[in-house]
Amino acid sequence: MRKKIMIYILMAVGTLFLLTGCKKNVGTPEDNAVTDESDDKKEDTDQEKKVFGFCGIDMSNPFYATLKDSVQSALEEQGDKLLIKDPAGDAERQNTQIQELIEEDVDAVFLCPVDWKKIEPALDALEEADIPVINLDTKVYESGKVAAFVGSDNRNAGYVCGEDLVERKPDGGQVVIVENLNVNSVCERITGFEEAVSKGAFEVVKRIQTGNDVSGLKQQVAQVLAQNPDLDAIMCGDDQMAEQVREAITEAGQEKVYVYSVDGSPASKKALVEHTGGMMGIGAQSPINLGKKAVKIANAVLNGEDYEKETYEETFFINRDNVEMYGTDGWQ
């Protein structure tokens, strides 16, 4: 009888031992250190996020501010980050800021060069660091040192302005050109304009070279207006220049002088609607579309996919007749 009791006791202890051992496999998370797959995926996603750099020409220029916003919005939609630098029109400062982006170990840089030749040291440093460059809006001189260029058809933007002037002034007239020889895109616009007006009897009576600072432009234009009472038109390389020119024309009471520009900022479109400052037409571009396209190409570059080495967005003419189609509250 005692043997049977001992056997029953041993069997009960064994069963309890087995049950305890089994419980360990189905117990609390503390008992079972099971890795949550969603946590692993989150860590992988965080590691895959990229950091980009953006360095424009002058972020006080609404065009570059809008371009930056477009790039940033597109990157944030895909979970990436953008570091922004503002050289404020200073070529040397831009080279320093590019070096700062290199030290931040960015994956790629979106670059609008202040000076298309003086940017070369920064391009060399980026190449040494194996960081690809997406060149935006205005070309660098050494185009072989960038992965891709994304810009507007600037020659056409200038051409459509000149074409309109020829139609309005078939007998020709006197023209002033406001330009910046440091910026390739502005040079292309002026080239397109001059190609168009060469078909008419126009004389360029003055060329104003602004460099990267337009603060003194209004005074220069005021002097030109006083010296050239028969002036017919002023062609501006961008809307920042045009704003200064319109102010000078308004103050001089010379709104018979036609003003043309390239960009399509809200301020210039509003001047078209209100017929102020002689504003007659704009060779328009879209910084919003440029930014979106640039991000797509940057992704292709980093992912080793096929992409276009050079991409040109369409430019078009906005005048007093069609400006309402594009609105004055923002960029087209």
Rank of each mutant, 00 (worst) to 15 (best):
I190V: 09
V13D: 05
N156K: 12
A248E: 00
C22R: 04
E179P: 03
V150Q: 06
G21M: 09
Q94Y: 06
G237M: 09
A196C: 11
E167C: 01
D306S: 14
E120G: 07
E92Y: 07
S286L: 01
C187S: 15
F17A: 11
E203V: 10
P87L: 14
D90N: 15
T66V: 05
D44A: 15
N299I: 15
A284K: 06
T276V: 08
K292A: 02
I9C: 07
N212W: 01
A284G: 08
V150Y: 04
E77W: 00
L231K: 04
R207K: 15
G278Q: 03
A294M: 10
K117V: 15
K169I: 01
A294P: 04
V197P: 13
E308W: 04
Q97P: 01
G253A: 03
D58H: 12
E188A: 07
G277K: 01
G79Q: 14
V146F: 04
W116D: 15
N32P: 13
N228R: 03
I282V: 11
S152W: 00
N228Q: 12
V323Y: 12
D107T: 08
R93A: 14
F316K: 05
K145Y: 07
H275P: 05
I297T: 09
T276A: 02
G211W: 14
I98Q: 13
L302P: 03
G89M: 08
G151W: 03
K206L: 10
N32I: 14
Q240R: 00
V160R: 10
M6C: 04
G14R: 03
V34R: 13
V183F: 05
A125R: 14
D329E: 10
I282L: 09
C112S: 08
G53W: 03
M279V: 13
Q47A: 14
S215G: 08
Y64W: 01
A248W: 06
V26G: 12
Q285A: 05
L302M: 07
D90M: 12
D321L: 05
K139R: 02
R320F: 10
K42V: 02
S265K: 04
E30Y: 15
I102P: 08
S185W: 12
V186Y: 10
P229L: 02
K85D: 12
C236T: 01
E43Q: 08
V160H: 14
F202L: 00
G172W: 00
F63H: 06
S152K: 03
W116M: 15
I297Y: 08
Y312V: 07
Q254D: 11
F17T: 09
E313P: 02
I249E: 06
C22P: 00
I98D: 14
Q220T: 07
G14K: 06
R93V: 10
E243C: 06
L16W: 09
T328G: 01
D263S: 05
G21K: 08
G158L: 09
D44N: 13
A294L: 08
N212A: 00
C161N: 11
S265T: 13
N303Y: 05
S261Y: 12
D46V: 11
